[in-house]
Every structure is written in C-alpha cells, then in structure tokens.
C-alpha cells in the first residue's frame, strides 16, 4: 500500500511537471510579446518584469526560472498583470477556498444523490420511479451546466418574488444559503452520471451469486440490501469520483460566473478574458496539480474501502 502510494505520488509529480511544461510552451506560443498587449505597462514595471521572468534571456533559461518559481514548498506564481500589485499566490489563497467549498458541496450533493437515486431506480426497476428518474438523468446529462445555472437562478428569482422577500439570495457569497443553489447546480451533471452508474452497478450486483447466498442464509431483504448489495455497488461509483472532481472544478468556472461567486474559477476566466498571463499560468499549474492529486487521493481512499486493493 505504501509502495503503491509512493509510486502514484511520483507519477503525479511527473504529471504536474508535464502540465507545467505544457503551460509554459503554450504561453510562449502566444503571438507577440506577452508584456505588450493593450494594457500598457510602464517602462519601469516592464524592466522589473523582464528581469524577474528573465524575458531578456534565452527561452531555456526562462523555462528554468519558471520551473524554479513553481517549486514547492513555496511556489511563487508572480504578480498579476492586470491587478496591480496583487500576487497570484494571494489571488489563489483568497479565492480558492471559496471554490473548494462550492466544489465539496457539489461533490457531496452529487455523490449522495447519485447513490440514492441510483439505488432507487434499481429497486424500482422498470417501474414508474425508475422511468421518471432515468428520464431526468438523461436530461441532466444532456443539458449544459450553464443552462442549469441560469434556470437555477431564474427559479430563485421567482421563488423570492413569490415570497415577497429574499428567501434565498440569487447571487453572491457569504452564508450557507448562498451556497445551496450554486453547488446543487454544479453537482447536477455529475449526479446524473453517478445515478446511471449506480443503477447499472446495482443491477449487476443483484445478479451476483453472493446475493443468492445471502438469501439462502435467511437474511432479511433490508439486511441484504444494506450489508451486501449497497456496499459492493458503490465501489465502481467511487472510482469515477476522482475524474469527476475535474469536471466539477471546471464546471465551477461557469457557476461562479453566473452566480457572481468570488471563487478562483471566476478570476481565472477573468484572467483568460483579459489575457493576464501570470494569473493564467499560475492558476493553470495550480489547478493541474490540484486535480492530479485529487485523483490520487480518491484512488488511495478507494483502497481503504475495497479490501481487494487494500491488501495488495
């Protein structure tokens, strides 16, 4: 297990290096001088920046500087081009927690909902609840997240105007009520996917021999469901959670935009729109590292749940 973890971590580090390099190359493909866009930079700042990023040096040198700056434990992502005097590290530090809370809630909603609805559809297979839920699942998979975000907001507006006062805030951040709708909307697509997966998984498990054994042992249907079926059916669902974190993270960009949430995603999109290169590079590498390690974390956690992996 420890060897496995170390191997995974090493592969993760290499992947992050790959991401950083790809980011660097991509950014150097940008036509023109990154410092010479319409956001005029004063000569002094320009000189500072040039020295700092070694822009006057050959590209291999710049690459090494870039890599050295990224090194843990104190990565330094530089200073924003457009927000004067704001360090990219600070932007990440200030806004990532917001995105993280949003994402965690969304993961929670989607996992809980996916397992619950998936189990329900399997229990009521081919009957009304199954048909209704699966119809919604197909919708959930086919409707883009920004439409859900817009509809969610519309719903809140209508609910509030119906109530005559602001029951749930339509946008912004701060209290738990702010978080509800955005995280629900964010988790919806993943929830649909997980529901589908859980359903297939449940139906596979029902036909397994060990369920027949459990029945032959004289266990109650409830006990069989919770002790034998559910646990085995959830396993494949957990394995896709890792990659789904990436989906939820990028989905967060849109939700943060629509609901005006001060998360890192919104700043990233803003930076992209304003071509704020340091912020783009910094957040891309940060996000990349975050996602790579989240996948590893989920895989290792999975090992604790599935004995077949744990022991090996």
């Amino acid at each position: 297990m420890i060897v496995y973890t170390l191997k995974r971590l090493l592969a993760g580090v290499i992947t992050v290096w790959f991401i950083a390099t790809a980011t660097f190359i991509a950014m150097h493909q940008v036509p023109g001088d990154p410092l010479l866009n319409d956001k005029a930079v004063s000569a002094e700042i320009r000189k500072n920046l040039e020295r700092r990023y070694g822009l006057d040096k050959p590209i291999t040198h710049q690459y090494l500087i870039f890599l050295r700056n990224m090194l843990p434990p104190n990565p330094d992502f530089g200073i924003s081009f457009t927000q004067q005097n704001r360090r990219v590290n600070d932007i990440i530090k200030d806004h990532f927690p917001v995105s993280a809370i949003l994402g965690l809630l969304a993961i929670f909603f989607s996992a809980a909902g996916g397992v619950l609805f998936g189990a329900l559809t399997a229990i009521y297979r081919n009957r009304l609840p199954d048909i209704v839920i699966m119809f919604l699942v197909i919708l959930g998979i086919s409707v883009p997240s920004f439409v859900f975000a817009a509809l969610g907001q519309l719903l809140l507006v209508n609910v509030n105007s119906l109530m005559g006062y602001s029951l749930i805030p339509v946008a912004g951040w701060g209290s738990f009520t702010h978080m509800l709708m955005p995280s629900l909307v964010l988790g919806l697509g993943t929830m649909a996917l997980l529901t589908r997966l859980m359903r297939t998984s449940m139906l596979d498990v029902v036909n397994e021999d060990y369920i027949k054994t459990a029945r032959a042992k004289g266990l109650s249907p409830q006990r069989i469901f919770f002790k034998h079926q559910l646990r085995n059916a959830i396993l494949p669902v957990i394995t896709v959670l890792g990659p789904q974190i990436a989906v939820i993270t990028t989905g967060g960009f849109i939700v943060e935009l629509v609901f005006a949430i001060p998360g890192l995603g919104r700043y990233f999109v803003q930076a992209v729109q304003q071509l704020d290169y340091t912020v783009i590079m910094g957040t891309t590498v940060f996000y990349g590292a975050f996602l790579v390690f989240m996948v590893i974390v989920v895989d290792i956690l999975y090992g604790f749940i599935d004995p077949r992996v744990r022991v090996q």
Partner: peptide, 20 residues
C-alpha cells in the same frame, strides 16, 4: 497517459489562447 492527465478544459482554454 500524460495527455489524459492534463485537465481538459483548462488546456482547451490555454491552447485557444496560444493559437490566438
């Protein structure tokens, strides 16, 4: 495997910027 590990949408954005 490495290409798979790249966060997809982030790199879509990055490439779009790079191509200009």
């Amino acid at each position: 495997d490495f290409v798979v590990a790249l966060p997809f949408l982030l790199f879509m954005i990055l490439f779009k910027i790079a191509f200009g």
